[in-house]
Design a protein around this nucleic acid. Sequence first.
DNA 1: GGGAAATGTGAGGAAACACTCGCATAATTT
DNA 2: AAATTATGCGAGTGTTTCCTCACATTTCCC
Lengths: 207, 207
Amino acid sequence: MPPSSTSTEPRKQPRQARSHATVEALLEATAQVLVAHDYKGATTARIAERAGVSIGSLYQYFPNLESLVAALVDRHAQGLLEVMDRALEGDDAAGLEGGLRTLIHAGLDMQRLDPALHRVLMEQLPNVDRLRRARDTSHRLTGLIEAFLCRHADQLAPGRQPALAAVVVETSLEAVAHRAVNDYPSAAEQQRLQDELYDLLLNYLTS
Amino acid sequence: MPPSSTSTEPRKQPRQARSHATVEALLEATAQVLVAHDYKGATTARIAERAGVSIGSLYQYFPNLESLVAALVDRHAQGLLEVMDRALEGDDAAGLEGGLRTLIHAGLDMQRLDPALHRVLMEQLPNVDRLRRARDTSHRLTGLIEAFLCRHADQLAPGRQPALAAVVVETSLEAVAHRAVNDYPSAAEQQRLQDELYDLLLNYLTS
DNA sequence: GGGAAATGTGAGGAAACACTCGCATAATTT
DNA sequence: AAATTATGCGAGTGTTTCCTCACATTTCCC
């Protein structure tokens, strides 16, 4: 393994439809290989082969393997945030209870976007800065939740500080939703856990 | 990277004090290298060098790199469970509230055992069976918590099923404790999150 | 002390790895 | 249709890695 260049910036921009398809195929292949072989087994050769593209083409658009994974992380994180954003927008009329229901539902949906990929991306990426930065979707999520709580501050229990509560809510929501989707495949069980999550968070917020 | 043998069983048992020290040094070195270089960077050469031992000695006791990591995981998991076991033993007199306090305290303590190592082990190990098996300390923990809840079943809210509640409690406890220890270094902040955790779980269990 | 067993050594083989580079092909522009 | 630019290719380079093996050293036991 010779030294890998440190930049994670794209090497060149695709200008024709053909090359857009190549980049797309590479990203998709990266996702599949990550899921099938774990991070340590995600090699340039495997990814290129899976994408039906030569190694050389891979390096036309990504300066190194890490940047390819970083691009995939960015894209996945984008999708996650959009799920939560869409769910929370315009749901203020439903009050804290209703909003919490959609919040929890969105939490489950996020995990369902691509659970296997989600696992690898969240669990196995090395602590390289670029990847870490892309990974703290959690922190941006916490921000969204804090804003949500502030919008319903009047219904919160007296002592609850939105900033602190947002951390607790986001962390438990993500963890329980993750476990529900990954360890309990049946829809009935997932529904039960979703109901428990509602109990957990509502009682906490309103004491 | 030639084919790595698949067995993770120890190659031979150390019989003299000297070799016990070697095995110990290797495990300790593995932990340090994992923390310093992430899973992908944990190479046999680095580990042996750090342990002050030759590569050959490493392979006297471990058939491959993976088995070395697996042994470390086992050992770490053992430590975690002992923390929780000790905390819960004989604390039945304190009732649900008191027991929950020690439960939460133990959850934080588990994360503090060796936070950096804990992170790498929990987050970066590949999904190889042996490692997966060793990793589901969470499930055994859930069992401990379920037993705890059953012991105080009379104080639980009417609808609460211990088995389901144990999953929720274990998952949120682990996640929030993890975040507290890793993202909030100051003792004051950790204490605040610990109190929030108490609110979260007590309100949930007793509705 | 001497033989046997346990332990330690590290150079080196074989394979896998990230990445380059010179060149072929396809699309676009003029 | 010629020139230019964009895209695609994959054998090859230099490195890294896992792991073995023939041998050296230490400990144990009588």
